[in-house]
Amino acid sequence: MKITIDVDCTPEEAREFLGLPEVKPMQDAVMREIEQRMLANLKATDAETLFRTWLPAQMQGLEQMQKLFWSQLTKGDREPGSGRE
């Protein structure tokens, strides 16, 4: 013997009938928070912001490289046989 029962109701009606809690307000709040965080992170990845963040480190590296080159050049000028002893 096989019995089939078709229930025609909305998800809200089924949730209420079964005594399950309404989670839509909580889901909406969580989605708003996620959206705000994502937008804040997108603003942080703006090209101008990234450029300002990365530039000081790159400039420091360039300055160190220049100092290294200059130290090697001046070191070569002071060695015997260079004509500038």
Rank of each mutant, 00 (worst) to 15 (best):
F17G: 03
P25D: 07
I5G: 02
L20S: 05
T49I: 15
F51N: 00
L68Q: 14
D8K: 09
M31K: 14
P25T: 12
P11C: 01
Q58C: 01
K67I: 06
C9A: 15
L50H: 02
D28W: 01
A40Y: 02
A29C: 02
P25I: 08
F51H: 03
Q66F: 04
M59L: 14
T49M: 01
Q36N: 08
T10M: 04
Q66H: 05
T45A: 07
C9Q: 06
N41K: 12
E48R: 05
D6K: 14
T49K: 10
F17Y: 12
K24H: 11
P25Q: 12
M26C: 02
G76P: 00
L62M: 14
M26W: 03
E33Y: 05
L18R: 08
M31D: 12
E33M: 13
G19P: 05
E35P: 00
Q27Y: 09
W54A: 06
L55C: 02
D6F: 05
A44K: 15
L20M: 12
P25V: 10
D8R: 12
Q60V: 01
Q60T: 07
L42N: 08
E33G: 06
Q27S: 12
M31F: 03
T53N: 01
T10C: 04
V30W: 00
G76Q: 07
V7I: 15
L18Q: 03
K43Q: 12
F17R: 15
L73Y: 08
W70A: 05
Q66N: 04
Q60C: 01
Q58F: 01
